[in-house]
């Protein structure tokens, strides 16, 4: 957790093994003594594909340089855009099995509303802009997963709000 000034802290991490969710959230909570709210979101690997087939592994390929930079930029944008005091984004890469945590987003702020909003924004950007490529492996073989139209629409909601400002 890096704090440019007290009460403006950001952490972005590319994790190559299981995310220690409790430890990351504790760091977030302790980054400032006076947070009134800590909101977190965990994205996990489902056991079935969209087609209803059993999923054996989800593999997230990453770029050796651009992936971490994309996580840092998204985390920093969340901190800038909302009245929040700390943002933590931890994203897995590599092979994962059902139930494992893919992504952890944590936001701390004085009040809950901004923290919920920032977490929602961070996830919408991660779904469409974090530099990863997903593959599902199972009895069906291998299948690439690309952002859905819904993901793109979710991301665009925040652009419309920008335009209205």
């Amino acid at each position: 957790m890096t704090c440019e000034i007290p009460g403006r802290c950001v952490h972005a991490e590319l994790a190559t093994s299981a995310i220690d969710v409790a430890a990351r959230l504790e760091e977030l909570r302790l980054s400032a003594p006076d947070h009134g709210a800590v909101v977190s979101f965990q994205g996990t690997v489902r056991s079935l594909t969209k087609q209803g087939e059993p999923l054996e592994q989800l593999v997230l390929d990453h770029h050796p340089r651009m992936t971490l930079v994309s996580l840092q930029r998204i985390a920093e944008a969340g901190l800038r855009r909302f009245e929040v005091s700390a943002v933590s984004v931890v994203h897995r890469c590599g092979a994962m099995t059902p139930g494992e945590v893919i992504v952890l987003v944590g936001v701390a702020s004085d009040h809950r509303r901004e923290a919920f909003l920032a977490a929602d924004y961070l996830m919408d950007r991660l779904k469409t802009e974090a530099v990863f490529w997903k593959r599902e492996l199972g009895p069906f073989g291998e299948r690439w997963i690309e952002p859905t139209e819904r993901d793109t629409m979710d991301r665009e909601r925040w652009n419309e709000e920008d335009a209205g400002n």
Binding site: H63, M66, V69, T128, A130, V131, F132, W133, E146, P147
Partner: peptide, 28 residues
């Protein structure tokens, strides 16, 4: 991506650039 930054289709690539092509990305 040229030198680790996304560029538009009109961007002119020069010899010596680091050039990569990336399929649509998806995290979360």
């Amino acid at each position: 991506a040229v030198n680790n930054e996304f560029v538009p289709e009109s961007h002119v690539i020069r010899p010596g650039d680091t050039v990569e092509f990336l399929s649509p990305v998806s995290g979360g």
